[in-house]
């Protein structure tokens, strides 16, 4: 396992959140516990076991290309903090 503090800071950055020093200490130790728990899996011998993306034995769950009614425009916009001209208004996108 890498440096816990660095891992936490990276996760915080990726999640676009800010933590106080107190939160950082608390969440850091909680995250450490979680990772330690998941790390237990490394104790298993998985030699010769095919990696899988899913535990459920289901494949080819598909639908035909048939249009279905969408929700109303009003319903779609209802939860948006800000709208204009039918668009969801967001802070200016710059890249």
């Amino acid at each position: 396992m890498g440096n816990m503090r660095e891992d936490l800071q990276h996760a915080v950055k990726l999640a676009r959140i800010e933590l106080t020093a107190e939160e950082e200490a608390r969440l850091g130790s909680q995250l450490g516990d979680i990772l330690k728990y998941v790390d237990k899996l490394n104790e298993l011998d998985v030699e010769g076991v095919e990696p899988t993306a899913h535990a459920v034995p289901l494949t080819n769950v598909l639908r035909e290309d048939e249009p279905r009614e969408s929700i109303s425009h009003e319903a779609a916009m209802r939860n948006a903090p800000k709208t204009a001209n039918g668009l969801f208004i967001v802070p200016k996108i710059v890249e």
Binding site: R63, D65, E66, P67, R68, E69, S70, I71, H73, A76, M77, N85, G86, L87, F88
Partner: peptide, 23 residues
């Protein structure tokens, strides 16, 4: 295609904004 990849909303160009949308 007639519909989008994961839902039955129309795959259609030029519709009024946010009308071919669903949850």
């Amino acid at each position: 295609t007639r519909t989008k990849m994961w839902c039955g909303c129309a795959n259609e160009y030029g519709a009024e904004a946010n009308t071919n949308v669903c949850p």
